[in-house]
Nucleic acid binder design. Structure first.
Lengths: 191, 191
DNA sequence: TAGATATTAGTAGTAGATACTAAAACATCT
DNA sequence: AGATGTTTTAGTATCTACTACTAATATCTA
């Protein structure tokens, strides 16, 4: 039985740290009712880095993301963009995005990717979504990679119509027609 | 001249750390051509936290952001619910939800609140969003509290039509018509 | 040149670890 | 029950990037 307990604990540990990287070995030991050494052995065997390393990674990721898209915070990774024309982003899904009871990714994540891609596409400091008609064509499961393609279909003054299609592999999972409004930067001149 | 040099160095230090929180005192000392102690004195005088604390803060912020559109089943706080009838939730917005360049809350947060409220309303273990028509009626600013009200307007077999209206105070900011499908729990019995 | 300000040096102590050795507890097989 | 292997715990030395503190030296200014 010992083997089982160990395996289960290690699995739980992996998951827990994925969801909450802010726990020290001490806290983990208390949580699992084992000694610190056991936790350290487990982390070693699983190749999980220490608290400080985990924090650094989270911070770096966040920082990289904020930096690289400082003006156009995007959900997913922006792969390609031609302002006021077309854009493409990729979102790797995981179980933190699913319903508690299933492995199906919740709709608003798919929407967020599409919506932020559409907003990034607008050549203006700020773009507000005015309205949208969206359709979910097939469920997306945790672990699948969503590729979203956005195309500007119409420009009328400050208004933009943008069509977004999202795929998993070559299966369509989502389509949306977005109406966005380009805003001048609200008060300050760029700085 | 000493005072000037010190003041300038401290200003530069503040800015540098703001832009790049990943530098150790040693690296900072090398960069400014002074000793570690000087850097530590400077940080003390300016009330700037140490590297590890800075990393932790960046990581926490980042994590908070990820969380806001993930882990929980419902975005916002569920205040009231009558399954298959109506529900109400409240979302307190903050600047982590805004565009970098303005204080306007990004559309997908408002959508996420509405979508998850609609899904919660369906009396089934899992509810998938099939499609939606949404409209943003007015911008929401960081700090404002969004109240979302959802109502089931039609039930047809596993299909539910749900109307969601969101308010800030008594101003309408969002309306959406959602089509959801109730799913039996896909394979496992609830656990 | 005295006095103030700024800078540097150095020590003790901290958290949260790594890396390592060794003992104890437990499980398993015969 | 005894030998063997796995798992868990204990404990020590060492590390980084510090804080908190004392004290000496360098530099500037009046």
């Amino acid at each position: 039985m010992a083997k089982l307990r160990k395996r289960q604990r290690q699995e739980a540990l992996s998951e827990l740290l994925e969801r909450n990287p802010f726990l020290t070995d001490q806290e983990l030991a208390a949580r699992f009712g084992v000694s610190i050494q056991t936790i350290r052995l487990d982390r070693m065997e699983l190749g999980l880095p220490e608290l400080r390393e985990r924090l650094k990674q989270v911070a770096e990721q966040a920082y990289g993301r904020v930096k690289s898209v400082s003006s156009t915070d995007i959900i997913g990774d922006l792969i390609e963009i031609n302002l006021d024309e077309s854009a493409l982003s990729v979102l790797d899904t995981d179980s933190s995005m699913t319903f508690a009871a299933s492995e199906i990714v919740r709709g608003h994540h798919i929407f967020a990717q599409a919506n932020s891609l559409a907003a990034a596409l607008v050549d203006a400091p700020v773009a507000l979504t005015g309205s949208a008609q969206i359709k979910y064509l097939a469920p997306v499961y945790a672990g699948q990679r969503i590729v979203a393609k956005a195309k500007v279909t119409k420009i009328e003054g400050r208004k933009r119509l943008i069509k977004v299609r999202s795929y998993v592999g070559d299966k369509d999972v989502f389509v949306g027609d977005f109406t966005l409004f380009a805003l001048a930067n609200s008060s300050e001149d760029k700085r």
